[in-house]
Amino acid sequence: MASNTAQATQQPARHFNLVRCVTTCLLGLIVLVGLAVLIIWLVIRPQKLVYTLVNGSIQDFNLTNNHLNATLDFVLMAYNPNSKVSVYYDYIRSSVTYGDQTLAFNTIDPFFQPHRNTSRVESKLVALDLALSPSAFKQLRVEKSSGEIEVDVHFKSKIRFKVGIWKSNHRTLRIVCSSVTLHFSWYKHFEVIPCEEEL
């Protein structure tokens, strides 16, 4: 009887020791991973990429029977402030929207951006006989008579980060340049627009 009681007491004790051992190991692993991440961050000190729309123009603008023809040119400056992180832009698509309607889109050649580098990204978008909604057509006609139109410019890219010999997996980067004013008069100065990055 006493032997059975002793065995029953030992089993919960062993179970408790096993749980404590597993818990201690997990906590130790979490601490080690946290320290590794902290050390990597302190060494690399990653900074946010900066994007600015520095030029935009519109040519050959024509509205006829609810259809639009136009050529839109934009220049985006991409700044990588990091001292140890480079960026691969493997795929880039640009588009311009007016309200809820996409006016034009195009694909830009991929490129590699070294650390502490500013890259010039040029995009030409052509709206060719684009069917407009009645409201968009009416509003564009009003804005054309005022001498300028306001659009949003979007860039979508598949990017990879490079640190030393390590390369990350692809991530989707979205850049939005909102409320971009395009003038029909060539002598009016383009207002530089800071763009928002959405990873």
Rank of each mutant, 00 (worst) to 15 (best):
S133T: 15
S86N: 10
F155C: 02
E191M: 05
K124P: 01
G99K: 03
A6E: 06
V37A: 14
G28P: 01
I165A: 15
S95K: 09
N80C: 06
T118P: 07
I165G: 12
L68H: 01
I30F: 15
W186Q: 12
C177F: 04
M1L: 11
L38S: 08
S83F: 06
L38E: 08
S95G: 15
M77S: 14
S86I: 03
K162I: 02
V180T: 06
H15C: 05
N69Y: 04
V75D: 05
A36N: 11
L68I: 01
C195I: 00
V142Q: 15
L140R: 00
R160W: 05
A8P: 02
N65H: 08
K144E: 09
V33L: 12
V151E: 00
S133Q: 15
N17L: 09
M77W: 12
K188Y: 11
V96W: 00
A2H: 08
E148S: 15
H154N: 09
K84M: 09
E197M: 07
L173Y: 09
V126C: 07
V75S: 04
I39K: 10
D90P: 00
T97P: 00
V50T: 12
S157W: 01
D73V: 07
I30E: 13
I149D: 00
I175Q: 01
D109W: 06
H115C: 13
S119K: 06
F105Y: 13
L72W: 01
L26N: 08
K188P: 01
Q139W: 02
Y88R: 05
Q10L: 15
I108H: 07
H170F: 14
S57A: 15
T97Y: 04
K188F: 10
V180L: 10
L173D: 03
T64K: 15
S145C: 11
L103E: 00
T52V: 13
S57M: 12
V31T: 06
L49T: 08
L29M: 15
V142C: 14
V142A: 09
S145R: 15
G28W: 09
L140V: 00
L26F: 10
H154K: 15
A13D: 11
T181A: 11
D109N: 08
N62C: 06
Y51N: 04
Q139A: 10
T24G: 05
Q113F: 03
C195A: 10
E148D: 13
K84G: 04
I92V: 10
V50R: 12
V54Q: 10
S94V: 02
D109F: 05
P46W: 08
V126G: 04
R141W: 06
T107A: 12
V43W: 14
R174L: 12
Q113H: 12
V180K: 07
